[in-house]
């Protein structure tokens, strides 16, 4: 028996810490521009739409659909158990994030699949936001 080698985990920055703190608390957080209303992710110091600086953190519904996907058979490092599904999720609030599809066969990944966020504790400091097929 040997433990699985580690996967590369995030090291939160000053900019990204609210997102990762949210994950530990079971909330999927993104930034909203107060000036133009755009949803912003990944975290930015200014809005990419209007260059506004008033970006406030909001909690997503965690619901979205699969925008694109790839079932991976060759991992970048041995720590990932293959096959696994990498997905681009389009969240209800109109922003995109990269994640993994979990709680189902990777081959279930298809564009348009309704998904909801679920959180996976990866270490004492880091909880990863993953997605599973929506129940409803």
């Amino acid at each position: 028996m040997s433990a699985r080698p580690p996967i590369p985990l995030p090291r939160p920055t000053e900019l990204s810490r609210p997102h990762w703190d949210g994950c530990r608390q079971g909330e999927l957080r993104f930034q909203r521009c107060r000036d133009c209303g755009a949803a912003v992710f990944i975290p930015q110091p200014v809005c990419g739409g209007c260059f506004g600086s008033e970006l406030v953190w909001e909690t997503s519904s965690g619901r979205g659909t699969v925008y694109s996907h790839s079932v991976v058979h060759r991992p970048p490092v041995p720590g990932f158990e293959v096959p696994y599904a990498v997905i681009v999720v389009e969240l209800e609030e109109g922003w995109f994030m990269l994640s993994n599809l979990v709680d189902c066969e990777p081959s279930n990944a298809r564009i348009g699949l309704a998904v909801e966020v679920c959180f996976r504790e990866a270490s004492d400091e880091i909880t990863l936001p993953c997605f599973r097929p929506s129940e409803a």
Binding site: I7, P8, P10, S16, I42, S70, P75, L98, I111
Partner: peptide
Amino acid sequence: TRPTQEFVACFGLYTAVEFALIAQRHMH
């Protein structure tokens, strides 16, 4: 091929996957 960025590396993304996600959408 292995990015270290905090919003991609932890999900097992590397260059082949990044380009695959673009290809898959086009195929769809």
